[in-house]
Amino acid sequence: MASHTATETTEAVTHGADGAVMSADAVGAGDAAVAHGADAAHDAGGLVFHPLDQFIVRPIFGDGGIFHPSMPVPPIHWYTPTNVTLWLALAVLCVVLLFVVGSRGRATIPSRVQSVGELFYGFTHKMVEDVCGKEGLKYFPYVMTLFVFILFANFLGLIPMSFATTSHIAVTAVLGFGVFFGVTILGFVLNGPSFLKLFWMSEAPLFLRPIIAIIELISYFVRPVSHSVRLAGNITAGHAVMKVFAAFAGLAIVSPLSVVAITAIYGLEVLVAGIQAYVFAILTCVYLKDALHPAH
């Protein structure tokens, strides 16, 4: 990541009287600062940690873009094609390849790719039907969209040098709050005011019901937060840990251990990528079930 142009400019500053203070401030900071800090670390002969650099959103083209990562990142407009755009587009491409190109033969005896697509279809279809019942199958395409998108985004994020779109709270919050608002509006549209029975435990003793209602209400509004932070947190943590171990590989003594650890954590992350997509999808189904059958 550390490049010469950035390093030289920062060195020009650092070589002033307050150079030591500057480099101390710069540790753990952003791109240009990391280049600076990395340089300082190299001078000290130590290790270079910047595990969060992989999550920086950059434009695809121009200075500070993904091909010139050493330059400062320019301001990003809503329409700028960024690495987010690139990896989202690849996820879309994977979905198209698996489900459209893979099944183009419409074969009764399926090809390998087609049978994988059918497997995903059957798995998600069964999940929606088991959790929400037959009425939930109307919303199966939405759940399928979320599931395959998160699954492919997670797995694409595991490719070395890639960008994990689902590690960003902006992405997962859109997904999580989208489910939250969708399910809440659907609940009121389908059930009217009786959707509020979801919070009123008719089995509980009467004096406990208001208290339970308050707790249920709070937990209901925490759902989208936990739903989105769970996904982003899992992916971010896994990738950051791998990057930290990768930094340790720079030390000859611990590098074999570091490589083994990266391998192990990578295996774990492959599991996490699948499991988190599954968890997101099945929680969506559970919330959808509340909207379809609000009475406990």
Partner: peptide, 17 residues
């Protein structure tokens, strides 16, 4: 930026599926 491109990606995936 992220939300804009994510919404496009989700809509495309939804329509394709």
């Amino acid at each position: 930026n992220q939300i804009f491109w994510l919404l496009i990606a989700l809509v495309v995936i939804y329509l394709v599926l």
